[in-house]
Amino acid sequence: MNDIQWYFPKTLEEVQPHLKRDGVKLHGGGTWILRGSMRGIKGLVDLGKLELHSFRKDSQTVEMGAGMTYAETIRSMTTINPDHILVKALQHAASTPLRNIITLGGTIFSFPVWSDLMGPLIALDADVVLMGERSEAYSITEYVKSSALRKESLITHVRFKNIGWNAYYYREVKTSFDYPAFTITILLKKNKNLIEDTRIVVVGCAGKFSRVKKIEDYLKGKTTDSLEIDGIAQTHELKFTKKRSLEPAYLEHCAGVQIERSISELTRG
């Protein structure tokens, strides 16, 4: 086994010099590193001693430290809203002991296709606060699409608007502790029965994730009693590739059905 040099920085400044070094990786929860190959890793920078567990909220914004685990996130978000999309999604993610290890920052950085975190964050239009080469806040979609941003930077915080939209979350799994073939996140802003705004995000489709704009556009500005939901599914235009033993046609069909049902559920009553 290769000998790994460990670093235990106590401040963000101490992390800085490690960001540019070859073969040195940041270690948050560590599950992603262990899932991948250890080959070529020369150094690991343990982020455990940094203060990356802060949770701040005001009427406008929620900000969470990137070192927060899923379990910590669930606990914190529950204090705002037990039906928050992050609570709904993360309480089913992985398993109890893994929810105590996996961190927000690690997931955003690695973005596994089965993630239960990314759909909600994309739907929330979250910002990722970085330290390093380009120290500032970026929208999460920009972050995940830019390898340049991911390189040589550390995610310190995640930030999103404190919005009280209705939330719906669906994960396509074989058993409860499974890594979803895809997930559907829907946020819906209703004013009485008027749909003022909505965001629909599917993670796990071709291209890793997708906003389902066509359906969003259809819904926006409509009243819930004027919707014709049956058949909406056919318009999602999502593409899937074969996953394990699941065929694209089935995944496309299921995604459609579940989007339809989610909308129906969210717009009911």
Partner: peptide, 10 residues
């Protein structure tokens, strides 16, 4: 990961 067996929730 890929060969799933039932857990208590299932």
């Amino acid at each position: 990961w890929d060969y799933k067996i039932f857990n208590i929730r299932d």
